[in-house]
């Protein structure tokens, strides 16, 4: 998935200077435009203020520019439904929706997504308001340990948002970025099909 320009006002060079851990080392190379953008210098360890729009709520936060969205969701906001599996873009356990598109929260810097609409599992799957996808995952037993499951649900939400009635092949390809070490794939694929079918007729 391509990294889009974030418009956050921080140059990548600035926070590459403060890399310790996290996503920064995996950034796409600098574009000339991004490099030319005016940058505020940020000292290592210092924080900057951002406002993140998460599940319809604005959160005003002080974050280190090097923090991944995954880190901010879990360690700052306590939204632990988004799971770390590899923290380097290999497993999809941390899948969230940014402006409706699936994205790995471990490869996304919090400062990149200011002003974007961020949706996490907590925003789409609640026992009192089950989404069609979440309900289908429950009914089909589309998980074993459940650790990859929030990420699978978010990947399915993203897939069905861009292609409401995918073919079985599209579903397999669309879900292939999300590893399940328990190997629950057959039930996961069935759940996505079921969710897609239950949405026919315009139901959400």
């Amino acid at each position: 998935m391509a990294h889009q320009d974030d418009g956050s006002g921080f140059s990548r060079r600035t926070f590459i200077g403060s890399i310790g851990v996290g996503a920064a080392g995996l950034l796409a190379p600098l574009g000339a435009g991004a490099a030319a953008q005016a940058a505020r210098e940020v000292a290592a360890g210092a924080t900057v203020a951002v406002t993140l729009q998460i599940n319809g709520q604005a959160h005003r936060l002080e974050v280190e520019p090097r923090w991944s969205l995954l880190h901010v969701l879990r360690e700052v906001l306590g939204l632990t439904g988004t799971k770390p599996g590899c923290e380097r873009g290999e497993c999809g356990a941390c899948t969230v929706l940014i402006d409706g598109a699936t994205r790995n929260a471990c490869l996304t810097l919090a400062v990149e997504v200011e002003g974007r609409e961020i949706r996490t599992i907590e925003g789409v799957a609640r026992p009192d308001q089950p989404s069609a996808v979440a309900q289908a995952f429950v009914d089909e037993d589309a998980f074993q340990c459940g650790y990859c499951t929030p990420g699978q649900v978010m990947a399915a939400e993203g897939l069905l948002a861009r292609s409401p009635h995918p073919s079985p092949e599209e579903i397999r390809a669309g879900m292939s970025g999300n590893l399940c070490r328990c190997g629950a794939y057959p039930h996961i694929l069935k759940a996505v099909e079921r969710a897609s079918a239950s949405r026919r007729g315009g139901r959400p």
Partner: peptide
């Protein structure tokens, strides 16, 4: 415990 697992409400040690 399907709902806890599917909605991410289940608290694993990592969480």
């Amino acid at each position: 415990d399907a709902w806890e697992r599917v909605t991410g409400a289940a608290v694993f040690t990592r969480d």
